[in-house]
Amino acid sequence: MKILVPVKRVVDYNVRVRVRPDGSGVDLNHVKMSMNPFDEIALEEAVRLREKGIATEIVAVSIGVPQAKDTLRTALAMGADRAILVKSGDDVSQDLEPLSVARILAKVVATEKPELVIAGKQAIDNDMNATGQMLAALLGWGQGTFASAVRIDEGSALVTREIDGGLQTIRLKLPAVVTTDLRLNEPRYVALPAIMKAKKKPLEELALADLGVDTRPHLTVVSATEPRQRQAGVKIQSVDELLSKLKNEAGVI
């Protein structure tokens, strides 16, 4: 079974992001970038399926600036067999919206013909949580989102989903799209020899223009603002005072 894993290059989760002075978005200049953590979980799941003898090939795909090659090299070091970069432009602050990404991925799926796409449920930059769902719709495939467990079983995928109030397990006929939640697995650390080996694995580059995909935006960013500064807490003297504050000030009881 071939598995396709889309990976996105995003601002590293340790970076304290700053909003651009004109409010048009987050400043991405000279900022450390890494693989979207949910995509690391997706890749780890694919690698585990290969280790169990279920998957035979893992293809990582990224869409974006040429620097996304670094992210793909990480994917190769983590265990992907080969990688595809769809070059969409040179401007790091130009982000493709989920529908465009889903359309591009659908094209890649058409050529690669994977039986399973495992994607992060969302990217930690824009938190859209839409690409996986849109891709499934475009392909006419089943989807199992927010997966906390994935089991492959005779032509279908049993996906346990984290939903409000508990867990739901669904059976999807393959091919299908699965998006990963935080608790699906804990990605392994990359081993140093794997970094060397990754340099020899194939990395194919495609130009977005050659795919014939409509990527005209449907969304406009109106403004980006910093979150409000957190106010300092207060110390209270007694349980009675706490109850009174919860009742009268917070209005929660």
Binding site: S34, D70, R73, T74, A77, Y189, V190, L192, I195, M196, K199
Partner: peptide
């Protein structure tokens, strides 16, 4: 270079 950066990131995550 790219590889050395990757090694640094990997080691740093583990550390």
């Amino acid at each position: 270079n790219e590889t050395q950066e990757e090694v640094r990131n990997t080691t740093r995550n583990f550390v």
